[in-house]
C-alpha cells in the first residue's frame, strides 16, 4: 500500500527532444536578511561576552554537577513530578468522565473542583496542604487510617497532594477535550456491536483520545518538573532547586548553583521530550498512513540509501 514514488512515465511518452535551455536569471538580493543576520549575531556576541567576562566561577558548575546532595535533590524532583503527574492523570480521567456524565451531580462536582483548583495559585494550594494541621489536628479515616496530621502531612505528602490535585484539574480538561475529539460514530459502532459504555470508553474512545491527550500532557509534565521547585519554598520539600541553592549559600557560588539547577532542569526536560516523541508515535498508529521516522531509523535510512532520498516513513 505504501505509495511508490519511483517515477515511471507512461509507456507512450514521446522521446525527449533537445534539452531546453535552463533559465539563467539574476536572483533577487535579500539585503534585509543580511542586515538582520548581522544585527542578531552582534547582539548575541555582546551577550556571550557579557557572560564570559562576568564574575562567574564556571568551574563550580561541573564540580557540583554530581554532588551527592544535588543528585538526591534531583531524584526527589523526578520522584515528586512523576508521582504527582500520575495522581493528576488518574484523577483527571475520573474528573473528565464525571464532567461528561449525564448525572448532574457528578458533573457539577467535577466543574466546581476544576473551578477551584485551576482558579487558585498552586503555591497557595501547597501552603494550604502543608499547614493543614493548623485546622485539622488529627486525620481520621475511620478504621483505615488515623494519625496526627503533623505526622501524616510530611513535606512529601504536602507536595504530592498540592501538585497532584492541582494537576488533576488541568489534566481533566485535557482528557475531556481528547474524549470529545473522538468521532461519535466510533461510540455508535461499538454500541451497535453490543459493547457496554465502560468497555467502549476503555477499548475504543480512550485509545483514540490519547492522540489528542499526549502532546498537552507532555507540556504539563514539563511544567510539573519545573513547578515542583515551588514545593521547596512552600512545604520544605528538599528537591533539586533547594539542594543546589543550599550549596550556593554555603559556598558563596549562588548564581553558579542556579546555573547548575537550570542545567539539570534542561537535561530532564530534554530526556522527557524524547520519551514523548516515542509515546506520540505509538498512539499515532492507524491514524497516519506512515509513522514519522525515529532518529535511529533516519540514520539507518540515510546510511543505506544515499541516492534515494524520500521523505516518507515506515508503515504504521
Amino acid at each position: 500500500m505504501t505509495a511508490s514514488l519511483k517515477k515511471s512515465g507512461p509507456a507512450d511518452t514521446p522521446p525527449p527532444g533537445p534539452e531546453p535551455e535552463a533559465i539563467k536569471a539574476i536572483p533577487v538580493r535579500h539585503y534585509g536578511r543580511w542586515v538582520a543576520a548581522v544585527v542578531v549575531l552582534a547582539l548575541l556576541g555582546l551577550l556571550v561576552n557579557a557572560f564570559a567576562t562576568a564574575k562567574i566561577n564556571y568551574h563550580a558548575i561541573p564540580d557540583f554537577m554530581f554532588d551527592s546532595n544535588v543528585l538526591t535533590g534531583l531524584g526527589k524532583t523526578v520522584l515528586i513530578s512523576v508521582l504527582a503527574m500520575a495522581l493528576g492523570l488518574v484523577l483527571g480521567v475520573v474528573l473528565a468522565v464525571m464532567r461528561l456524565s449525564k448525572n448532574p451531580v457528578t458533573s457539577a462536582v467535577s466543574w466546581v473542583y476544576i473551578w477551584f483548583f485551576r482558579g487558585t495559585p498552586v503555591y497557595v494550594q501547597l501552603l494550604l496542604w502543608f499547614n493543614l494541621a493548623l485546622i485539622f489536628p488529627y486525620i481520621n479515616l475511620g478504621p483505615i487510617y488515623r494519625d496526627e496530621m503533623s505526622d501524616f502531612m510530611t513535606p512529601f505528602m504536602a507536595a504530592l497532594l498540592g501538585l497532584g490535585l492541582n494537576e488533576a484539574a488541568y489534566m481533566s480538561e485535557i482528557v475531556r477535550s481528547g474524549i470529545q475529539s473522538v468521532d461519535e460514530g466510533q461510540t455508535e459502532a461499538a454500541h451497535a456491536l453490543g459493547m457496554s459504555q465502560g468497555r467502549t470508553l476503555r477499548r475504543i474512545v480512550l485509545p483514540q483520545a490519547m492522540r489528542v491527550i499526549v502532546p498537552p500532557t507532555g507540556n504539563e509534565f514539563i511544567n510539573m518538573l519545573k513547578t515542583s521547585s515551588l514545593a521547596a519554598a512552600a512545604c520544605q520539600y528538599l528537591e533539586l532547586l533547594r539542594s543546589t541553592s543550599d550549596i550556593g549559600q554555603s559556598t558563596g557560588a549562588t548564581v553558579e548553583m542556579l546555573f547548575l539547577a537550570a542545567t539539570w532542569y534542561l537535561i530532564l526536560t530534554s530526556i522527557f521530550s524524547i520519551g514523548q516523541f516515542y509515546l506520540e508515535r505509538h498512539y499515532a498508529r492507524g491514524s497516519l498512513r506512515s509513522l514519522p521516522l525515529t532518529p535511529w531509523q533516519k540514520i539507518k535510512a540515510n546510511l543505506t540509501s544515499f541516492s534515494n532520498r524520500q521523505s516518507g516513513g515506515v508503515r504504521a
Binding site: 466510533q186 459502532a189 451497535a192 459493547m195 477499548r203 498512539y283 492507524g286
Partner: peptide, 30 residues
C-alpha cells in the same frame, strides 16, 4: 444489540486497530 449487526455509511471502523483486530474486537470483548 449483539444479535443485530449494523453497517454504517461512514464505515466507522476503529482506526487504531488493524482490520483483523477490528473484526476480533467484539467477539473477544463482548
Amino acid at each position: 444489540r449483539r444479535d443485530i449487526g449494523m453497517v454504517f455509511q461512514r464505515f466507522n471502523l476503529f482506526p487504531h486497530m488493524t482490520a483483523l483486530a477490528n473484526v476480533m474486537e467484539a467477539p473477544i470483548q463482548v
